[in-house]
């Protein structure tokens, strides 16, 4: 009952909800933590990296947001450890599964910007469309050209 090799936040969203269940089963090994204890442990670990990131951002690298530094520290930690601790995976996947929920409170602030957005509606829409099309195109083309150069078919 191992996790699939490459689960990601949205794989879970796609109904691969069984990953949580399989995690639960791996957690049921003898003398391992209970589900709720694992939840708490995972949360503590994530909070710890978040706090380390905030500290680093506050005192050393003020230009980079604390949570991003926490992300980088956690990535380094995972690379050193060689695997994702099951309890951290459990909590992290649960949070990421509903990532969208977390930016609702900030997005509702759009009520404060409705007049200025309405006045610029067409220009903003055109900008967003052109910019995303250009970004997809440039990323994909650079990737295609470089990959061809690396390994001719």
């Amino acid at each position: 009952m191992r996790m699939p090799k490459m689960p990601s936040l949205l794989a879970v969203l796609q109904g691969a909800n069984c990953s949580l269940r399989s995690q639960l089963l791996t957690l049921r090994k003898p003398n391992s933590l209970s589900y709720t204890e694992a939840m708490i442990q995972g949360l503590v670990q994530l909070f710890l990296f978040q706090a380390l990131g905030e500290l680093l951002s506050k005192f050393a690298l003020p230009f980079i947001p604390g949570p991003v530094l926490g992300l980088v520290l956690l990535l380094a930690f995972l690379a050193l450890r060689g695997h994702v601790p099951a309890s951290m995976d459990l909590v992290g996947s649960s949070i990421l599964q509903h990532l969208g929920l977390l930016f609702i409170p900030a997005s509702v602030g759009v009520v404060l910007y409705l007049p200025v957005l309405q006045a610029n509606a067409w220009a903003i829409t055109a900008t967003l469309v052109l910019s995303v099309v250009a970004t997809v195109a440039v990323t994909a083309l650079v990737l295609k050209l470089l990959a061809q150069k690396d390994s001719p078919p």
């Binding site: 936040l9 992300l71 951290m88 992290g92 929920l101």
Partner: peptide
């Protein structure tokens, strides 16, 4: 509204940290 909803908003930072997990698996 935000005063109440800030408890949801707070978890954004934790979610950002959690992004390390799919990135690590992607490597």
């Amino acid at each position: 509204y935000f005063e109440g909803a800030q408890f949801v908003h707070f978890l954004l930072g934790t979610a950002t940290v959690s992004l390390a997990i799919p990135i690590y698996k992607g490597f």
